[in-house]
Nucleic acid binder design. Structure first.
Lengths: 257, 257
DNA sequence: ACCTGAACACCGTTCAAGT
DNA sequence: ACCTGAACACCGTTCAAGT
């Protein structure tokens, strides 16, 4: 594999690739196949359980063969990271309004993060400049620029929405992962954690509030709660964008003679 | 160390502790000292570089001594996680308005995440029911309940604000970590990444937009940009909360005769 | 009660060697 | 051009043994 010679090695996506693959024989290995196997293993076992050796075993190959196609484990994870961005169903770019597409992007991103709980740590770790990530970023920019915000406000508004979704999806994904590990239903697991926390002297006080909230919501499932909170937060963010856009319009017109 | 006998082992904070420490002699080891050393090592080298063996070396003790005080590495990380929540300077709870305290909590949390870039992955991984985390959570609830939102909206609004801060601080912390690794100033690093990305065929197109944004902001430093975007997002969120509260008031009065 | 040493089953990665 | 095997310097954790 060609190696970057100079400067900071910032990402897989910034090193030239040899074009030497002549498909000279049907090798079981290439970057796509390796990346796909990586995603499969990450989905099945999570980030901690993933190793180059396990990947090699999955590909029925010796541990070191993979290193012909990839410089380091980090590079491989960066490839897997970008690959799953390709799963996002992106809305039509020509939509007139910004609200619908923005909600669609946020919802898709949330689903992606929950489906691949290993994604958030990687998305935080690397530069996210792979082709699929860039397409996603472009969509986000296009949509947010249509919201009527001042230009300087666009990056902040994007952060408000998509850092929120990132955080929300991260925590939700971990929660559901623990649920799976426990072998219980989400609701049974939630109740069990609440009970355990409630029994413990140091933490009991903290749950009484949570219990009240739960009761006030009238027997909704955990999944319902997660959906409702997400929806409310998204409504709040859309309302916030509208308010900031209105504020900018007012200030703009106040400056005119 | 006493072990949890039944149920899902969900957290260090849910196992009874023996009260057998009689301070019978000035041992160099106890939970606090071990936790403090863990935080020190995590701050210095990050999560990946941290190991039980390195920690033991730092404490001038054999690798396995630590296991007398702590069941697993996970438990230790959970202790470190909660310990740093104790660094948060929390606002007075009796403040009349909610806006100031909410901004203060968000800003403090952002600073904490950036100061300890190993914190986000751990905060995502564990249950966050340590004593310090609970104090923080109680402050958040108290403040948000004063914003005039309907009760069912409070969890969603908390998510909107603090999942955003979580995501923002995570990415910011990683960025500044890469800056430190590069040995460059934040601005030089940022320029270098932009240049490298701009030179690369696959990614070049993506930066032209970013360059324009940068130019439109008129020579601000990277640190300024991060602060401004965060401030704008926080304004947006406060405006969103106000809008949702107003909406609830309207619907409430519309229902009256 | 607290600490140690040896051992087990793993890691990522390098490097020389095979075909 | 692609794949292998042996080796290096690590991991977290168990377990029997020391004081």
């Amino acid at each position: 594999m060609a190696r970057a010679e100079r400067g900071v090695r910032a990402s897989v996506w910034l090193v030239e690739r040899d074009t030497r693959r002549g498909a000279r024989r049907p090798s079981p290995l290439d970057r796509e196949r390796i990346t796909a196997a990586t995603v499969r293993l990450l989905d099945a076992g999570g980030l901690d359980a993933f190793s180059m050796r396990r990947l090699a075993a999955e590909l029925k190959v010796t541990a070191m063969s993979v290193y012909w196609y990839v410089d380091t484990k980090d590079d491989l994870l960066e490839l897997a990271l970008d690959a799953v961005y390709g799963e996002l169903a992106l809305p039509e770019e020509r939509d007139a309004d910004w609200r619908g597409p923005l909600r669609a992007l946020a919802t898709e991103y949330r689903r992606l993060l929950v489906r691949h709980p290993w994604l958030p740590p990687l998305a935080g770790r690397y530069l996210n400049i792979g082709p699929q990530a860039l397409v996603f970023a472009r969509h986000i920019h296009t949509v947010m620029r249509r919201a009527g915000l001042p230009d300087e406000g666009v990056p902040g508004a994007i952060s408000a929405v998509f850092r929120f979704v990132y955080g929300y999806g991260t925590v939700e994904g971990h929660f559901l992962g623990r649920v799976t590990d426990s072998g219980l239903t989400p609701d049974a697991y939630y109740r069990q954690v609440m009970d355990t926390v409630g029994e413990h002297p140091g933490t009991a006080e903290a749950v009484t509030g949570a219990r009240d909230i739960l009761a006030a919501r009238g027997g909704a499932t955990v999944a319902d709660m997660l959906d409702r909170d997400f929806a409310f937060a998204l409504d709040l963010l859309v309302a916030g964008i509208e308010a900031m856009a209105a504020r900018a319009r007012q200030q703009g017109s106040a400056l005119e003679p």
